[in-house]
Write a protein that binds this DNA or RNA. Sequence first.
RNA 1: GGAGAGAUGGCCGAGUAGGUCGAAGGCGCUCGCCUGCUAAGCGAGUAUACUGGGAAACCGGUAUCGAGGGUUCGAAUCCCUCUCUCUCCGCCA
Length: 422
Amino acid sequence: MLDARFIRDNLADVEARLKTRGGDVDLGGFRELDARRRDLLQQSETLKALRNKVSDEISRTKDKSQVQGQIAEMREVSQRIKALDEDLRIVEEELERLLLTVPNIPSPATPVGTSEADNVEVRVWGERPVFDFTPKPHWEIGEALGILDFECGAKLAGARFTLYRGIGARLERALINFMLDLHTERHKYVEMLPPFMVNRESMTGTGQLPKFEDDLFHLEGVDYFLIPTAEVPVTNIHRGEILRGADLPLRYTAYTPCFRKEAGSYGKDTRGLIRQHQFNKVELVKFVRPADSYRELEKLLADAEEVLRQLRLPYRVVELCSGDLGFSAAKTYDIEVWLPGQDTYREISSCSNFEDFQARRASIRYREEEKTKPEFVHTLNGSGLAVGRTLVAILENCQRSDGPVVIPEVLRPYMGGQEVIG
RNA sequence: GGAGAGAUGGCCGAGUAGGUCGAAGGCGCUCGCCUGCUAAGCGAGUAUACUGGGAAACCGGUAUCGAGGGUUCGAAUCCCUCUCUCUCCGCCA
């Protein structure tokens, strides 16, 4: 959420910068609602001040018969206050609804552009493997090895669900443990294991609600949502809190499954593990001082990249342009892993600085010193990494001509020493 | 699922026959004084949000005692609904 006062004071500038995301931006309604809100608030508060003053006088008058006039008068004042407050409530609700659907302002560091095509390649790492045969896509490899069973996934749940079997299941688990160990031991993140479903406040805090309810699985009977990413529960850990400056930056990592409806992606990526309703992810989340947030973003990105480097999987980093930026982000880097079976780079991590956008929604503040005013923190997060897609990258990059897949060295301790699948 | 108890400021904890309670007291913290150092002691201060004025320092108003609603001139205190926590019973990995 943007700061209402900031919008009020910089309306034209805010509109112009939001336009770089593409689509329509109209903050005209904001100005009017904001003005009406303050007008109603002042009227109501003036009357309340009067009522408080007169009530105080009444309380000090022992003979109540002397103040019957004031009591009658205040009865009327209270009615007017009630009416004003009702109008105010409606205006504030509208204003809130409007503000919650306005996306974050892209950072000046975000390149301006209209689509994916305008994203900027920042760096490329690793050697793409050279094959003396035509590399297969992971779904063929996984099925042939008997470790990925798409048909059974569909039988158990439906399209976009997969059953991992045997060594495939173990490889997924090995990746999760490897990533968590790397981030906790080497990068000094604190591991969290949060609830996999959360309430409406949490979803609103990180920006999934109210605008993207259609993308979420909602439970029947209780107002809980399955999390689409660990970002939601982990960022909301500090919702409504005032943190101590000395404790910043806070770094958390968490493994969770993620659940997404993938509405609007019919027919897209229907084969294989790329786009599933349920997938595993290890997430990195940071709470930092505003002045440090862009430096922390670079570090977070490096922490995520380190996973691919250790696995020796080739990738590139791209900077998302304004038109491709997510709703809550001010600046985002995507890490894209090379998939030789599909002859393309594929997103495997998205690392973003949300600045104070989520912090304002979720009211996450910090106080530098005991006496200083609380300020909003900046929140960041990134995948470290999407586990299923990492498994995909291993199958495709480490495949051999006759079918087997070589397990990356760093994973072997997690695989009971096994070196090859198949 | 059933029965009961509770939710007050950074923390602990008073306050329920409605008013002088943004809220006693203690702890913590900040500043000052005092003391050869430390400890102790003394004094002052110590919430947040919105809003009006001001260049600012700051000054004023309103709201907040789990959340929402009601009664009343006036609610931390009375009534209703909800949420959460705790205890006991049941059930269960």
